[in-house]
């Protein structure tokens, strides 16, 4: 998903890119709590009737579910923030905070958009200057990436 913002005072344009994810963290916790309650109750009652060996299997399985949800959510928490000022184009990539930051001089930066030779395969969008290249929006769907390329072309013109 692509969200754009223009600050009229500073003239800065900010574009936030994020992958599609239909589950929020809150919902994920609710899901885990529901599964934990269900599996915990079953494991606990099994323990009470003497079948205590059920409990570790329930616990392990809940942990696996939690880990898998964490992996999937981690993927959907990726963010790319492109800030365009008069002088520079700044790209920040990360999850909760910027983990990688790249800067290009606005006047010289190039948009590099490559279509795949195979029909139906995703294209590739990058910003590059002086041999330095940063791919952006890898997790976007094709139409969003194309729209982003068009928007960048207008903003950087």
């Amino acid at each position: 998903m692509v969200e754009s913002e223009h600050d009229a005072e500073t003239g800065e344009n900010t574009i936030v890119l994020r992958p599609n994810g239909s589950l929020s963290r809150k919902q994920a916790w609710a899901l885990l709590a529901f599964c934990g309650l269900l599996m915990g109750m079953i494991g606990f009652f099994s323990f009470l009737v003497g079948a205590w060996l059920v409990l570790p299997f329930s616990g392990l399985e809940w942990l696996l579910l939690a880990y898998c949800l964490h992996l999937s959510l981690r993927q959907s928490q990726l963010r790319e923030v492109i800030t365009i000022t008069d002088a520079v184009v700044r790209i920040e990539k990360g999850r909760d905070r910027p983990e990688q930051t790249y800067k290009f001089q606005r006047a010289w930066v190039m948009i590099d958009w490559m279509q795949s030779p195979i029909r139906g395969r995703p294209s590739r969008l990058a910003l590059k200057l002086h041999g330095k290249e940063v791919e952006i929006g890898r997790f976007l769907v094709e139409s969003e990436r194309q729209a982003l390329a068009r928007e960048l072309k207008v903003l950087l013109h």
Binding site: M110, D112, W113, M114, R121, P122, K153, L156
Partner: peptide, 17 residues
């Protein structure tokens, strides 16, 4: 600023053909 558009110049960079 300029825009470069390729069709297959970097096709070998893709890992998911």
């Amino acid at each position: 600023m300029s825009v470069a558009t390729h069709d297959d110049a970097h096709a070998h960079d893709h890992h998911d053909h």
